[in-house]
């Protein structure tokens, strides 16, 4: 069971800020494939991976990163701070 968090337009498109996901996905990309298959709103949010960033346990990571031992995955658009 991992916590999956969504921010900004990813959160709006999926319609919730966080959820617990039961998954056997080996990598971030595998998890995205699983989520995409759930419902249209997930497919819409994950349609273009190049428009997304991912953090694993609050550290920026990459889509091919393994999920083993990870407790929290967050998906969001490129950051616009400052």
């Amino acid at each position: 069971m991992i916590d999956v968090l969504y921010f900004a337009w990813v959160r709006e498109r999926i319609g919730l800020p966080r959820e617990k996901v039961e998954t056997g996905a080996a990598t971030v990309a595998d998890l995205i494939d699983e989520l995409r298959g759930r419902e249209d709103r997930y497919a819409a949010a994950f349609a273009d991976i190049s428009a997304l960033r991912v953090a694993l346990d609050q550290e920026l990571s990459s889509f091919d990163a393994p999920l083993s031992g990870v407790r929290e995955v967050a998906f969001f658009p490129p950051m616009t701070g400052g």
Binding site: A8, W9, L60, F76, P77, P78, M79, T80, G81, G82
Partner: peptide, 30 residues
């Protein structure tokens, strides 16, 4: 400043008469 712009997890949404719009990250910032 440069790192806060593109590596701190903040997302700006501008609100105006026409509703809200997420600010897109700029290539120049990256």
């Amino acid at each position: 400043m440069d790192y806060l712009k593109s590596r701190a997890p903040f997302w700006k949404k501008e609100t105006g008469a026409g509703g809200g719009a997420w600010v897109a990250a700029k290539d120049a910032d990256e």
